[in-house]
Amino acid sequence: MVTSRSSRPASQWIVGVRVFSGRPDPTWEPNPGVVAALLATWEQLEPAHGVPPAPPPLGYGGSFLRDPDGREWSAYAGMVTLRDDSRSVWRGDPDRQFERALLASAPPGLLPTDLGPGAPLVRAK
């Protein structure tokens, strides 16, 4: 199983999952089609108020997409948060489309078998 701690050059888009404690969290490079689809999904999401709940200390804590400029879309518990240097924007994702698309883009074998889209771990408490 291959994992990385995001030591890739900043010129690339990165998808990752916050999940491990001892091992580095898995990250990978999405193909351009996946990125375009994710951004389109983001544009369709409705603005949300409040912030998502904090993930538990151990286990799945959300997935993210990071662009070459350092902006990051984090998906967890039915919300997607866009953060850049100056602000955070929250949008609701009740069907967890964005999160599932992130997880579905993982190369085969990279994620634990009980972390695929629809797996119990993806459902927040």
């Binding site: 916050r18 999940v19 491990f20 404690s21 001892g22 091992r23 969290d25 538990p56 200390p57 151990l58 286990g59 804590g61 634990p112 078998t113 009980d114 972390l115």
Partner: peptide, 29 residues
Amino acid sequence: NGDFHWYRKGRNGLWSHKPGGTPVTNVDN
């Protein structure tokens, strides 16, 4: 087949841990 994790026992007999790159905590899930 996923990951490992470590806890450490403190002076007061209770345990604490640091899940990955997240903050140190003294509570469980």
